Simulated assay, not measured.
Amino acid sequence: MPEQLTPERLGAQVAPGALAPGGAPAAGARPRRRSTGQRLAPYLLLGLPVLLVCLALGYPMVRQVVMSFQEFGLAQQFGRPPEFVGLRNYADVVTDPYFWVVVGRSIAFCAVSAAVTMLFGVGFAVLMQHVSRLPRILLQSALVLAWAMPPIAALTVYTWLVEPRYGFVNWLLTSLGLQSFDGYAWLAASAWTFFLVASVTVIWTSVPLVTLSTYAALTQVDEEVVEAAQLDGAGGFQRLRHVVLPIVRPVVLLLLMLQIIWDMKVFTQIKVLQAGAGNNERTNLLGTYVYETGIGGGDYGMASALATVMLVLVLLMTWRYLRTLMKQGDL
């Protein structure tokens, strides 16, 4: 018969009175307190990553805010001290009509691209749950390849597809009898066709992450909950809408928030496609507008103010989703 544990045998690990008769822990026994090192270990492990992020992102952000209150142009790059101008750069930004045109254009582009990306991404994730193993592996492989393709290479392919004389899109449309698309310049014809092509390129590179992340969340849904809903008479769409999606809602909201941030500050796709558009003024979004003002025009003070306003807009657009996640305890 094993010996009963007593406070004397446990030594200092258990306080007197912590064990009930028979060796079981007493109901009011206090757990052993963690040492100072154990309590500080998580903070110490997080300290280095936080320090690296602050060094990599903190200084550029602080420098950007400081420059937004200065007159910082080409002369300052050659040694002239910058002049403090207060809120003049911000006043020039918000009173410029073209700035609000770019803001409205950027918000519309972001809303459409993010919505279509989430629709296709979640749809593909649900589809992957209902197909056999081989088609699922093929779809996953195709998504990973699309995601891994360098953006410049993908944009080169899209530029060839919409090339006016020899592009596949125009050839296909004219073969179907739509002769008006013979030699049609998708990038230069109008802003609508330009942003249609740009939106397709952005969605192409964004759908894989949404799909794979959502699919990973769907695989963690308890099958017993879904089966219980099925036994209660819920159909396939009802189970998806009222059972599955509410469970993975935090993941979907986080992906939507990230997608809004990425689409709001999109730059590479727009800048590369503008080479075939010939008119940047009607195709600028906030990212390219900041670039043209700073790098192209040499007015880094104004560009810093634009970038700061852009940051505020992104935070305002994602604040609702941040609050939702924090209320749910996921942040």
Rank of each mutant, 00 (worst) to 15 (best):
M1E: 08
M1H: 11
P2I: 12
T6G: 00
T6V: 05
A12N: 11
A15V: 11
A24C: 10
A24I: 02
A26P: 04
A27P: 08
A29W: 04
P42L: 02
Y43D: 04
L46R: 04
L48M: 11
M61C: 12
V66Y: 00
G79S: 10
R80D: 11
Y90R: 08
Y90G: 03
V94C: 06
Y98N: 10
R105M: 10
I107A: 14
A108F: 13
V112H: 05
S113W: 09
V116M: 08
V116R: 04
V116F: 02
T117D: 09
T117G: 06
V122C: 13
F124L: 15
F124P: 10
P135N: 12
P135E: 05
I137K: 13
S141D: 08
W147F: 15
V157L: 15
L161Y: 07
R165H: 12
V169Y: 10
L172V: 14
T174H: 03
S180D: 12
Y184M: 02
Y184K: 09
A185E: 11
A185D: 15
A191H: 10
F195G: 01
W204P: 00
S206Y: 08
P208Y: 00
T211C: 08
L212T: 03
Q220S: 11
E223N: 11
E223L: 07
E224F: 08
V226K: 06
A229F: 07
D232M: 01
G236I: 09
F237E: 09
P246Q: 09
P246I: 00
L253A: 10
I260P: 13
I260S: 04
I260Y: 02
D263Y: 03
M264K: 07
K265T: 15
I270R: 02
I270K: 01
L273D: 01
Q274S: 02
A277H: 05
N280W: 13
R282A: 11
R282V: 12
L285F: 04
G287T: 09
V290T: 13
E292A: 14
G298Y: 04
Y300L: 05
A303V: 03
S304I: 07
A307V: 03
L315F: 15
W319S: 06
R320W: 07
R320A: 13
R320V: 12
R323G: 06
T324P: 04
M326R: 14
